[in-house]
Design a binder for these strands. Structure first.
Lengths: 155, 155
DNA sequence: CTTACCCTCATACTTTAGTACCAAAATTGC
DNA sequence: GCAATTTTGGTACTAAAGTATGAGGGTAAG
């Protein structure tokens, strides 16, 4: 398709050239110019090398490349991204130990488990847990877990 | 649009050619070219028209269009899509009441709350809860909640 | 130095949770 | 209708959770 159109241009150009040359000849004959076959020869040379130039250009030269960038959208679903809600966490004003206890609590550990885990007595854990409930405004560990997960302050 | 541009080139070329031919004629008449110089003259013509052909070709040639598909990743944060893991739920072999109790349990309700909610006695709830723990292989309601959420059998 | 908060632990008590065992309706499937 | 299962409920007991209160040591800010 492309070549055909290009050829059209070349043929068109050739025809124009030919017409021009013959017009020139006619002018020569008409106005008593010196009869020189060299003109036709030069015309042929010009025609040949023009075509050669076009051929060289279209075959040897790097083709102009227009790059069309098409964006293909791919939807990616992130595998459970946990983002700690620090704002809510600060609101509760929990101290380090309380937060630590909360995390173990939410994992399903009993007070005894948490005590063993943190090398503390069960009494201490109970104190922390009670303070935790007060600060979180809940009345049981199950409520604490539910609320903590809802507020995204624990994983 | 393209045709107009192409024609412009052809016309331009034609004009240049015409000017050149007349210039040539003028040179011939003016300086009476020496026979020996004709080779150089023809060579110059050839070179000129070759370059002209290349120029014409490079201007007429249609650019090759390359389509480059770029994959653009769009991260979509799903607004909490809960998909019930029916497979895991079936494995546990819970009956309707037990599952119902589990859901209320996970909301942070006490046995008394659940009993009131389902119009049942606390004894019944205790029975269901115990069976639930046995089937889920846990020992407390906190563990049941953690496991249930982990298995995605409750919201 | 005092105040305030954090962290620890204890005792005493109440409440809730959880286990074990039993048993009677109700429902389901054959 | 009968067997199996579900659903319901009870009693009695143990274990764990949760509350209330006090108290001692540590640390940081004023």
């Amino acid at each position: 398709m492309k070549k055909l159109k290009d050829f059209r241009h070349i043929i068109l150009y050739g025809l124009i050239l030919a017409v021009l040359v013959f017009a020139l000849k006619w002018l020569q004959w008409k106005f008593v110019l010196v009869d020189n076959a060299i003109d036709i020869y030069i015309g042929a040379i010009a025609l040949f090398f023009t075509i050669l130039g076009i051929w060289v250009a279209s075959h040897i030269m790097k083709p102009k490349v227009e790059t069309l960038i098409v964006e293909k959208e791919i939807i990616v679903q992130p595998p459970e991204v946990f983002t700690l809600n620090t704002a809510e966490l600060q609101k509760l004003n929990l101290n380090n130990r309380e937060y630590e206890v909360l995390q173990l609590l939410a994992k399903g550990h009993s007070n005894a488990d948490i005590a063993a885990n943190l090398f503390l007595s069960v009494s201490t854990i109970k104190t922390h847990v009670s303070n935790l409930y007060f600060k979180m405004d809940v009345k049981s560990r199950t409520q604490a877990i539910t609320k903590a997960k809802q507020l995204k302050i624990i994983e």
